[in-house]
Amino acid sequence: MRKSQTAFIGLTRTQGGAYDGNAAPGAAPWATNLGVEWDMPGVAGLTLSGRVINTSSQYVDNANKLKIPNWTRVDIGARYATKVSATPVVFRAGIHNLFDKNYWEGVNSPGTITLGAPRTFMLSATIDF
């Protein structure tokens, strides 16, 4: 029976070897995205959508002493495809960060982190001509 091993690639060739073997800042070991769409029965052209995004914790610095926690975000949306005066039109509405969760989204560079956006409402229309 074999033992399972987790693949890990750490920092290498750092100055003086000070951080060799540490996790790279901003490299989340796990990121999971799950999206679904559902065409509404009885309402031609209407599609509902949802998405869950999960990202594991990440180190902020090369020394692996500062870490941002894991986070999960939920987004929802809808689109309606129709014709207006024989011209195809798609209307879209969406909400990102449905539950208005405060979270650190990621590490841009060692020591620099990005705050996740608050609940965001979006509306758009696409017209083919």
Results as ranks from 00 to 15, higher is better:
74 V>A: 11
74 V>Y: 14
44 A>I: 12
23 A>T: 12
127 I>S: 02
79 R>K: 15
70 N>C: 00
92 R>T: 02
58 Q>H: 03
38 W>Y: 15
8 F>L: 14
84 V>D: 10
103 Y>T: 01
57 S>P: 02
45 G>T: 11
95 I>E: 08
114 T>I: 11
81 A>G: 15
28 A>H: 07
20 D>N: 08
48 L>D: 13
96 H>P: 10
83 K>L: 04
49 S>Y: 13
85 S>Y: 14
5 Q>F: 09
97 N>R: 03
89 V>K: 12
20 D>Y: 04
33 N>M: 00
84 V>Y: 13
53 I>C: 01
91 F>I: 09
56 S>H: 02
86 A>I: 00
34 L>T: 00
38 W>E: 06
69 P>A: 10
5 Q>R: 11
78 A>F: 01
116 G>C: 04
7 A>Q: 15
125 A>R: 04
46 L>H: 13
65 K>D: 10
90 V>Y: 02
90 V>R: 02
105 E>P: 02
62 N>Y: 13
97 N>L: 11
113 I>L: 08
47 T>P: 01
89 V>Q: 03
91 F>L: 10
10 G>E: 15
77 G>Q: 03
13 R>K: 07
61 D>P: 09
72 T>R: 12
90 V>I: 11
66 L>F: 14
124 S>K: 00
126 T>Y: 10
48 L>C: 08
72 T>N: 05
30 W>K: 06
123 L>T: 05
51 R>V: 04
88 P>Q: 04
101 K>C: 10
46 L>N: 11
115 L>N: 14
35 G>D: 05
35 G>I: 03
7 A>V: 15
34 L>W: 02
75 D>F: 05
34 L>C: 01
109 S>C: 06
96 H>A: 08
17 G>V: 02
63 A>T: 06
83 K>W: 05
62 N>L: 15
109 S>D: 03
35 G>W: 05
62 N>I: 04
5 Q>C: 11
74 V>L: 09
106 G>E: 09
12 T>R: 12
38 W>M: 14
93 A>R: 03
15 Q>F: 13
66 L>W: 13
98 L>S: 10
128 D>T: 01
32 T>I: 15
28 A>G: 11
118 P>E: 01
10 G>H: 11
118 P>M: 01
86 A>E: 09
127 I>L: 07
7 A>H: 15
27 A>V: 13
122 M>W: 05
31 A>Q: 06
125 A>M: 14
123 L>R: 01
13 R>T: 08
119 R>K: 10
116 G>A: 08
80 Y>F: 13
98 L>H: 10
26 G>Y: 08
42 G>S: 12
24 A>S: 06
70 N>I: 00
76 I>E: 11
3 K>Y: 15
72 T>Q: 10
41 P>V: 02
12 T>Q: 12
91 F>K: 11
112 T>G: 01
71 W>Y: 00
4 S>R: 08
52 V>S: 04
95 I>H: 03
